[in-house]
Design a binder for these strands. Structure first.
Lengths: 118, 118
DNA sequence: CAGTATCCAAAGGGATACTG
DNA sequence: CAGTATCCCTTTGGATACTG
């Protein structure tokens, strides 16, 4: 049942709660951006993401990556190179956000045309 | 070109920027929730939304609705009843977020099963 | 009903420096 | 490279009261 679907139920508390559940995970100023970087680049190192996202500080990137790991959206792998290489990537659960990220990408471009450029 | 698409271009700055443009509009703790309420209920009054979204204060709802109006996602209509009735609804541009909201709804339910309920 | 105003605490987050 | 630690300002936003 979509947004315009008016099924038997009159209220939409379940939908409201579900969206809230999503936003609890994706909150903060940078999470979506980090997930986007990992979504499009597949594998990415700490310093790469730092460059991918203009304005983010190492402190925030560190914190947000930990949050995302805790929510099982991101996987951190240590490669035993010298010195060690740390790779971040989406988990399977994280990849289930792919469609949302693609939609946000598309919508962002549309919004730019609609508002920013007039 | 999707997240896994590796076309000719090697970088994804355009996509990163587009997502950032989206998030600039949808930032804050409550915007998505407000849009969700208007998406599923179609038309909604101030006090209705206050009830739809557990935890939001009238101050924040007021502020966020203004932001959304400024970004042309939400339309505010004054009905000349006694006393006046104020109706909020999505603009056409706002309705273009419908697919994202539906995806977030679905993903939230999936995430609940995956993480919260184990 | 549909907000606005004020106060104030807590969280967010930038800048800079430092570590293994 | 991949972070931590600290300082401290800024923003967020809750509580409460008030207005037309």
């Amino acid at each position: 049942m979509g947004c315009n679907g008016s099924g038997f139920r009159q209220d939409h508390k379940k939908e409201m709660m579900a969206v809230q559940d999503s936003m609890d995970v994706l909150n903060g100023k940078w999470k979506i951006n980090i997930l986007t970087s990992l979504c499009y680049y597949t594998k990415r190192r700490f310093s790469d993401i730092l460059i991918d996202i203009p304005g983010i500080s190492n402190k925030m990137l560190s914190k947000e990556l930990k949050d995302l790991e805790m929510n099982k959206l991101v996987k951190r792998t240590i490669l035993e190179t010298h010195p060690v290489t740390i790779e971040y990537e989406l988990t399977e659960h994280g990849r289930s956000l792919q469609i949302i990220i693609e939609n946000l990408t598309e919508w962002g471009m549309k919004h730019r045309r609609h508002i920013i450029e007039g």
